[in-house]
Design a protein around this nucleic acid. Structure first.
Lengths: 124, 124
DNA sequence: CCGGATCCCCAGGGATACTG
DNA sequence: CAGTATCCCTGGGGATCCGG
């Protein structure tokens, strides 16, 4: 029976899949933007801005969208009009991630009370 | 009839569950340490250090362990000996999170090739 | 052996102004 | 409208030293 144990050398940043996932989605906005597009399928820049909540800066929204696009989670359609019109749409790859995030979210929702209680106890 | 749409004000950091989860686990080490303890159940400080891979500083390991403990994901047993001995063990709450992280990890493993290909294409 | 206390550095991210 | 370009600042995290 093979060991399931993961060798130490495999836990570094390049080989450890958990780290890979965190490095990619540990930032402030990626998941949020992805979920918004998962819900609405297709949105324009300003619409995403509204949906996310207006506390994201234009700069960070742009940066986040570019990264999601580079990874293949969303794709971008540019309409050569004036004023410009750009639509963002979630890809199949992006869609495939959404349920996992949703599961985590559900876990968080149902366990957050316990966590908060634990934090309270810990403070004392 | 109330909108199903999530109001902007509900997406802020305190009310949005996704953000809550990210704020808690978006840091560099929490999930990694939790997974290590999920596998081994019970470990001493230095053992965790070894398992995580020695690229975590003592300070950050301490900080991470305190946060996990405060949230109720692990608990700590101090043996009043000299030299000191401290054991960390995952709780049921902690265990309940592990499968979700594993699912995300599996997703990452199977989709990382596609992501990397997408990144290559995007560079050009 | 465990981990607290300090110092320091840098990258993520905000605010603002500007443009095709 | 959908960005780009700058400037700036905060805090996460590393290195090091010390102490029970």
């Amino acid at each position: 029976m093979m060991e399931k144990k993961i060798k130490k050398s495999e836990w570094d940043i390049t080989n450890c899949p958990v780290r890979t996932v965190l490095d990619r989605f540990g930032d402030k906005w990626s998941i949020l933007v992805l979920l918004v597009l998962g819900e609405k399928q297709k949105l324009r820049f300003n619409e995403i801005n509204k949906e996310v909540g207006s506390d994201i800066s234009q700069k960070m929204l742009t940066v986040t969208l570019r990264k999601l696009e580079a990874d293949g989670f969303i794709f971008r359609t540019i309409y050569p009009e004036i004023p410009p019109k750009v639509e963002y749409e979630i890809t199949d790859l992006g869609k495939s991630l959404v349920p996992h995030v949703d599961n985590l979210t559900k876990w968080a929702v149902s366990n957050m009370p316990a966590i908060k209680r634990s934090r309270e106890r810990f403070k004392k």
